[in-house]
Design a protein around this nucleic acid. Structure first.
Lengths: 218, 218
DNA sequence: CTGTGTGAATCAATTCACAGCT
DNA sequence: AGCTGTGAATTGATTCACACAG
């Protein structure tokens, strides 16, 4: 049971998976679940599951398993999902609009707290029933009702400047959809989602496979 | 210089980063670059950069650094980006449409080879100048001109079935935007992009930070 | 002298294996 | 008897430090 700062990143990522499959298990009326079952549902190993939980405490009953409902609330608490997190979308182009209307956000307890853009042609328009606001009002809005996370969906060239506006507004967590390595103060939490990097990863694997087959075939 | 199958995943992810910053370095007219400079631009360590390259060979000149143009073509070759990869988008909702029009794809050498959906209300419509086709025609299209990667942007409930259609069509690489753990044969390459998992990761870090401050403050 | 390439050393994450509860 | 919780062992990745080439 380590301190929070020392939890391995991969463990945190897996907590999300456990949370997801447990939510389904509960919907299906399951009341207890073993590490083996949880491992099967997530594609991980039972030892991994138990080790991951052990960083935070001991939640199971020996000989029985984990009480689904209780484990689920524990995970919710660890992940900070007890009350819905408020999310602002910065950059209301095609991608930003798509995310604003994504039902998976709401169903997982995230609340789209606002849409922001710096393009006067967009400001004031309705997108998925929400009015697009000037990114300049982000600081005031955040001061009024805090925003937990900003989602950055601006064009590449505007990414660094927009990220700085977000940080200056006082927001300290950022989900960056642009393929730009943002330079921000160290206290700001950033996660990157880079579609082109993922495509390049797949492309690498395809090439590697092709090379391996060439070698074997010839 | 290991065999391709044993290259660490993190190394592959970093190759994409090197590729990206090198492309910018070349646009800026730089002709040589050291591992230290490359490290600075990517936020990694010089040793990491050299080690990553060493898995594939030795591309630098001692005392000098790496020739930018040459290293760039080497990376392009390793990543399989010599000729543009053909990408099909499966599921033309908000997100799929947004990706179809994303300029970063084309600028990085990916070609959107087709848009597919199973909703008759969408099939035949134009999206970003491309006609939406029935997902049932994916197999024939792939047989005619091979598709390298399918991007899965269907609703959660349809993900597993759509993925199976993609695989049955003969496509072996898949970029999955749905928060579903796909069950597919082991020869199929899958990368997942899960926005809600990333938000949950950030939410965890925010909570952990709040807990740590509570403790220190009280 | 400078900066690469790489074995050796360190650090991190996963897996093993079993003691200990129910 | 069954399954958790956890140190110990192992596997994997990163960092170090230095021999070597230009």
């Amino acid at each position: 049971m380590r301190r929070a700062r020392e939890i391995p990143g991969p463990t945190i990522e897996r907590l999300c998976k456990y949370h997801r499959v447990l939510a389904r298990a509960r919907r299906q009326g399951m009341s207890y679940i073993s590490s083996a079952a949880l491992a099967h549902l997530t594609g991980l190993s039972p030892a991994q599951v138990r080790k991951d939980f052990s960083y935070f405490g001991s939640f199971g009953r020996r000989g029985v398993g984990y009480e689904v409902h209780q484990l689920l609330s524990t995970l919710k608490r660890l992940l900070g999902l007890e009350r819905g997190r408020r999310v602002a979308i910065v950059g209301v182009g095609h991608l930003g609009s798509a995310l604003a209307g994504y039902p998976g956000l709401h169903s997982r307890g995230f609340q789209v707290a606002g849409l922001y853009d710096n393009n006067p042609a967009r400001i004031g328009h309705l997108v998925h029933g929400m009015r697009v606001r000037d990114v300049a009002s982000l600081a005031a809005d955040h001061a009024a009702v805090p925003i937990d996370i900003a989602v950055l969906t601006v064009p590449e060239g505007a990414a660094q400047a927009a990220a700085e506006q977000v940080v200056n507004a006082g927001i300290t967590a950022l989900l960056n959809f642009t393929p730009v390595a943002l330079r921000l103060p160290p206290h700001v939490l950033v996660r990157d989602i880079d579609m082109t990097a993922e495509l390049e990863y797949l492309s690498f694997c395809l090439s590697a496979r092709a090379r391996a087959q060439d070698e074997q075939g010839g």
